[in-house]
Design a protein around this nucleic acid. Structure first.
Lengths: 180, 180
DNA sequence: TCCCCTTGGTTCAAGTTTGAAACAAACCTA
DNA sequence: TAGGTTTGTTTCAAACTTGAACCAAGGGGA
């Protein structure tokens, strides 16, 4: 099949997208590095844990939510643990498991960094978009993400027995926020 | 000033965007790594050079176009040079300068990798978007990027004398394509 | 129960990225 | 034209990411 190249419109969109997200991620990374001493991905780990029940999540769950590889997460959590922001605990009913828990210190760091981070995201992104564009952005990337993870199947996450034991290693999502 | 947190709509958009671009970049990187033995950023270097007049560009110009730091580019070009895909030459009228040139071999590698890459971008992104969404994507990220580079001022790049000497170290943009 | 296959996590080496120097050439100004 | 600043590029160490092993432990099934 003879390659279907990108149309001029697609090329422009692609270029704009690449430039935009590179600049945006760069700016966010720098801001967080300066004000919180960690890259965006690490901040996201803290933010994600803070939203989870009991501030704890199993490594694999966390990795999946953050779209990180497990080894990357292992490395990151090790660093955050050294900094005292996260603690690792064993999962009781699955001896293979490891649970990352946000410490009080981690929560404190997160709370002190959050305003600056949110402000950056707002200033650099949302303040420049109309409400309609915010909706379009969500719609576009939701479609893209679905195609990329849905591909695998993602069996409906219905009642996996161990997810409900009284003292869960990980919990279920929750809409709260510190902006990723 | 008391932080203006993200609205629910903004939160959803932000989360979708983060997940989407992480998955997308990951997929693109893996595809290129497998089929061309290099990450997306490196492919972009080749693609960008191939579009430039005489397939050559000064390091700084290249870095700016690709939104890369200079040191990152230095490292990348050194690697590509080892692979024989790019060659470095001295800039004649500015002895500080260094020019990256795409070799024939580099061009060949690029051309063999392009179809697969474009196909990936198309399948994962454009085939999932309506024509309107493609336009929205461009518009949104153009606005974002403008805010991020325009901030610095970016004095109108009017006639810098050396840019026009008969045998330019770098040239001017050009709309052609191999999908970044 | 004994195997074998899958799953959850970590480890290790190799490759990349970052940011802060270090240099050298080009520019400007007095 | 000497001296100081800016610009173009590389270098270096430290941090981060990747992917391929590796090591349990869990889950069947014969």
């Amino acid at each position: 099949m003879t390659t279907r190249w990108l149309t001029p419109e697609e090329q422009r969109a692609w270029r704009a997208y690449i430039a935009g997200y590179l600049l945006l991620e760069d700016a966010i990374d720098r801001q967080l590095q300066q004000e919180a001493g960690m890259p965006h991905a690490y901040y996201s780990i803290l933010a994600n844990l803070s939203d989870a029940p009991e501030r704890r999540l199993r490594m694999t769950d966390l990795a999946e939510r953050l779209k990180m590889t497990r080894s990357r997460l292992t490395y990151a959590v090790t660093r955050l643990e050294k900094d005292g922001l996260v603690r690792r605990e064993d999962c009781e009913w699955d001896k293979r498991g490891s649970v990352a828990v946000l410490t009080d210190q981690g929560m404190a760091v997160l709370e002190s960094a959050a305003p600056g981070h949110v402000d950056t995201v707002r200033t650099l992104l949302f303040d420049r978009l109309s409400p309609e564009q915010v909706g379009q952005l969500e719609q576009i990337f939701t479609q893209v993400a679905q195609g990329l993870q849905g591909d695998g199947g993602e069996a409906a996450p219905d009642e996996l027995p161990w997810r409900r034991r009284s003292s869960p290693c990980s919990g279920t999502p929750q809409p709260d926020d510190r902006a990723t």
